[in-house]
Design a protein around this nucleic acid. Structure first.
Lengths: 184, 184
DNA sequence: AATTTATTTCGATATTTATCGAATTAGATT
DNA sequence: AATCTAATTCGATAAATATCGAAATAAATT
């Protein structure tokens, strides 16, 4: 998962940290200076800087008494250019179960034996249920209307509606005249 | 201030909201679908979508029973391109008092009459105090060493050190042989 | 018109987090 | 070596917020 991306946004989702970035974009500052400029305690600023450093936006350089922080402008630009790249967008959903909606709907509408309690009225739910039902057919194989009804009867007595909706949503194909059905 | 920028980052500083953006980047989804995909209650998803809509990243379109949300890809790209622009960086520090550090140091080192308690040993603080002292001189005007000492004596008895440091930090210029001083 | 359904709003709760002060650590100057 | 000083760490507290469930709203189907 793109935990890293969330951390990056979290690092910048604070007014004081944004101010620190803006200040460091002009010149390096010590913790003490930043604390005075932002009217915060040094310990608080140190905490903010640690968060910014974690995501690689700033780094420290020891200079006599002081710990001088500087902005990593290259990292900033790199990040900003790739923030909403295809890779990042994809990564953000990588651990999402894309079938969760269908599964939930099917679970709601089926009995333990797999048959349908009712045929959903709402389009989106109907689609989900039809995608479930259509799995009973083999891709490429030809079925007569009688065979289709036979299979659909295992799901619901209203086989005619099921058949019509399957064709209507394009999940099942029908040969014009001969009454042959198949899925692709 | 750039409150808007903070809000934008806050809107994306949450794993579930990032997932929503990633999902909507592929196709529009209803609240109910997103809730199932993310394993959250619809009310929670609605709350997240409201935050994303506030910063202009998503918008809703009514479609029969459902409220279908879509990603505003244009807004996303516009934002991502300008996130760390000079304007935004500047805006983030617009309400920061850039003299706050000097003011704090000067306040720490001066008496009520404006004279110095001591001359700071730390470089950064010394600089701040020197920037304060140098204000007693007029830009462009030429001063003899005697005049310089006269003015500096109002700040600290060790006028020689003050004079040397002022020149050393480049805040005051000295003509090579003649013993003339000025500031630019 | 009545009913169903998805969405939003609201109030409450639990988690996260920004901030501070005190104590500790690390470095540099004397 | 002893002493300053800035920075960090730690513990506590207060503020912000993610989440939920219940209630209210809105929209469409019957």
């Amino acid at each position: 998962m793109s935990e890293e991306l969330v951390e990056f946004f979290k690092a910048l989702a604070d007014a004081n940290r944004l101010k620190i970035v803006g200040l460091l974009a002009q010149k390096p500052y010590s913790v003490e200076e930043l604390a005075a400029l932002l009217d915060l305690r040094p310990s608080t600023v140190s905490h903010h800087l640690a968060k910014l450093a974690e995501v690689g936006l700033v780094s420290a350089r020891a200079d006599s008494y002081y710990n001088v922080y500087q902005l990593d402008e290259k990292a900033l630009m790199d990040k900003s250019r790739s923030l909403f790249s295809q890779e990042n967008l994809k990564a953000s959903v990588s651990d999402v179960d894309l079938d969760a909606y269908d599964s939930k709907v099917v679970a709601d509408y089926t009995r333990k034996d797999g048959s349908l309690k009712t045929i959903p009225a709402q389009r989106k739910k109907l689609e989900a249920v039809l995608r479930y039902v259509v799995k009973a057919f083999k891709a490429g194989k030809r079925y007569t209307e009688k065979q289709v009804n036979e299979i659909l009867s295992g799901y619901h007595e209203d086989t005619a509606s099921l058949r019509r909706e399957l064709v209507g949503f394009g999940l099942m194909k029908r040969e014009g005249g001969g009454g042959e059905y198949w899925i692709e």
